[in-house]
Nucleic acid binder design. Sequence first.
RNA 1: GCCUAGAUAGCUCAGUGGUAGAGCAUUCCCAUGGUAAGGGAAAGACCAGCGGUUCAAGUCCGCUUCUAGGCUCCA
Length: 606
Amino acid sequence: MKGNSQSQINDVNMRHSGAHLLAYAVQSIYPNVKLAIGPAINDGFYYDFDFGDIKIQEDDLLKIEEKMVDIQEKDYSFEKIEMTIDNAKKFLHDTKQPYSLSLLEDIESMGSTKKSEMSKNKSKNGNDIVTFYKIGDFINLCRGGHLKSLKDIGPFKLTSIAGAYFRGDEKNPMLTRIYAACFKDNNTLSNYLKEREESKSRDHRVIGEKLKIFMISEDVGQGLPLLMPNGEQLKHLLEEYMRKIEERLGYKYVSTPILTHKKLYERSGHAKFYSEDMYQIKDKENNIFYIKPMNCPHHHMIFEKMVQSYRQLPFKLAEESPLYRNERSGTLTGLIRVRGPITQNDSHIYVSKDQLKKEFLDVLLIFKNVYEDLGIKNYYFRLSLPDFKKDKYEGDKSMWDFASSNIRDALKESKNEFSEEIGEAAFYGPKLDVQIKNVYGKEDSIATIQIDILVPGRMGLKYINKHGKEETPIVIHRSILGSYERFIAFMIEQTGGNFPLRFAPIQVRLISVSEKYNETVLELTQDMRDLGIRVDSDVTEEGIGKKIRNASLEKIPAKVVIGEREVANKKSNGEWSFTINWRDDLKYQSDLSFSELLKLLKENTL
RNA sequence: GCCUAGAUAGCUCAGUGGUAGAGCAUUCCCAUGGUAAGGGAAAGACCAGCGGUUCAAGUCCGCUUCUAGGCUCCA
């Protein structure tokens, strides 16, 4: 939970007051609008409206914004009005506000409109009091938390229009949401807007195209990115890196088919939740196959074949295999959300109950080390717990508690900070999500560690424990890098494309001073390649300045110019010596002999 | 999938109903240059696709595909 400092409370009140102002302005321009909700958010506020048949377009925002300023100048103050629930119902019915009425019904039956408070509060009855707030001639249902007067609301700007379902439920009607940025002073607001504009240049889709990492072709299809040479090189380096770490820790790599008969998913229970989300293929004999969306059931088959005794635990299987998921088109984003391939850095650790915490701690340690190596900094942990009010969660409640408290203890023991979120667990168990924000501040899971207390039992997985009795293993599903594709996206955004030397697709570019040295450069390129250096050359007829500039724009770590000086030097010393122009963020020595450079690059090889 | 915007040369963008433009990239020519854009010329576009309105459509209307932001979903 975030701290409740005074300034945050004021920001929240200010922004929430801004939402009232927005609603007032909208209602005075569109008298028949129906109001839903208008909370403060991190950078401002929004309000959800139902405009009926009227279409609101981005051009209309200016008009609304002007109206807001007009109203603000009148300097109304917030006036609190209390009503009994019964009177409030009448009022909202008469003023034709169905959404507020629906909120009121929630207050009556569950004591609150906030989901987190619904279960804690007792229901209320018709004589209980609810509050309305009035500014000018605008009045709406609201629990409160405002500034004294409209004039104290800081500078704001309406930023966008979006659709949003009432109360976030896709069964409800879609409303029109108007977003606004709002800060205490003009400087902060304009800096915020400027930063938002500038973050575009760090977007992985922009850099990914510039650095020739990936592309999306309309003919190949939506959500089906193609990795170009630099992208595949990077992916391959990450795979090698992870595999080396995991094999050292006793993970065994396996390889399982991408096409799988539907009965496996029926046995695992995935079919029940996800059959709509898997690509289905029917063969000539009318067998139904799915393109695999996850590896777990396959690994369970291997466990079943290979493990009999507790002495074989923990048993760690790993795989990097392309997965495909039938995602809805509107959710697809560059490399972050794709239909496939989703090449997961996937592993399943089969443990007994008493091994769970230790293995969990070991996984946390891998996270720490790997993310440090790869330059990923701004991530945080979220413990995702079940919401037993949803149908999604089944199984023995005491096992859920056992698994959740193991994660919690492991996190505390390893001194990791984390938040808890109800209702975010997988259907088979609680999980720890590693969350990260993209350049626009949108949160996503980059990786996950899940505890599975359900599927192994359902699939009948067993081992013999030390008392000679059959027992069901617990499975830790874990992925350190998540999917390589998504990881590359965040790696691009976090480093701005300045990959660490050991992961740079091209480490060195050799640049010839003039045509005279092209052949020498090409020979040297081949020599370096033979030694395992990722090197390329620029022997075009451009000037040196242009070639350096191009290499810099491509974020190549080391640029080496070869001309008369270098060749003469080589002749007298018998060895090349280079003056290296390193990428700005790299602090290596610039004068190196061939063998010194080779040594440096070897140290930065996996 | 839903809401709101978009789609013009390989890339970034201009073009408000009347003969498709610029910069970069590309190709060719000149320059053979020592650390962030040397000079010149040429070539490159059924203006996303299909249909409609109009004497005339890149421009107006409809549908489709794709892209962006948001909602929902995320094993």
